[in-house]
Simulated assay, not measured.
Amino acid sequence: MAKEFQVTYDCADPGALAGFWAEALGYEFDAPPPGFDTWDAALDAWGVPADQRNGASAIHDPEGTMPRLYFQRVPEGKTIKNRVHLDVRTAPGLEGEERMAALGAESERLQALGARQLKRNDPEPPMSQGFIIMADPEGNEFCLD
């Protein structure tokens, strides 16, 4: 039986990075715990100081089919290339110029949200249909595929 999983990001600003990925993927922020109208109300009740309230954030697929993403603050910055990364399936089934145009449009949308385009890899059939390598606002690589 398959196991449910989440993808966890170590980062400097969990709230901001969760916001970027929520916009990028069409995800939503996790709701506050039962009995609280907001996360601030829950954190107040638990006595969490204001300077510690951005220690973690989580977002989920509103349809419940894709993995949850969890963001946790760590003291060190990113220093090397990711060993694991997300491929954001932007143009499945598209080929050639139509595919690269769709990837380019998504790259521009994400750049407006704070991402950077690192490299465009044009199609090289039969091994590659083309993709774009991006970095999120904290430098974590991902691909538009």
Rank of each mutant, 00 (worst) to 15 (best):
A16H: 13
T38I: 05
D87E: 13
D136V: 05
S107C: 11
M127F: 11
R53D: 06
Y70F: 15
N121M: 13
P67D: 08
L110M: 08
P32T: 09
G104K: 06
P75Y: 03
T65E: 10
L43I: 09
L69F: 12
W39T: 04
L17H: 05
V48C: 13
T38W: 01
P62C: 12
S128A: 12
E63Y: 02
E97F: 01
G130L: 01
V74F: 10
V84T: 11
G93M: 04
G26Y: 05
G96C: 06
D30Q: 11
S57W: 08
Q6T: 13
I59N: 02
A135Y: 05
Q129I: 03
S128F: 12
N54S: 12
P126Q: 06
A91V: 02
P34Y: 09
K119I: 04
F71N: 00
Q6V: 07
G15Q: 15
Y27L: 02
D40S: 11
T38G: 07
D51I: 04
E95M: 13
P67N: 09
G104H: 06
A31E: 12
M1P: 13
Q129R: 13
A58C: 14
F142S: 04
A18N: 03
I80Q: 14
P49D: 10
S107A: 15
A91I: 01
A31P: 07
N121C: 09
G104E: 12
A105T: 10
D13Y: 07
L103F: 04
A45Q: 08
G93C: 06
L94H: 04
G15W: 08
E63I: 04
M127Q: 13
A16E: 14
P67W: 15
L94I: 05
Y9D: 02
L94Q: 11
F20P: 01
G104Y: 01
L144T: 05
L43E: 06
A41V: 03
M127Y: 11
D87M: 08
G77H: 14
P75N: 14
C11E: 05
R83A: 13
G55N: 12
G77D: 14
R83D: 15
V88E: 00
Q117A: 12
P75R: 06
A112E: 11
S128C: 03
H60G: 08
A31M: 12
S107W: 00
M1F: 10
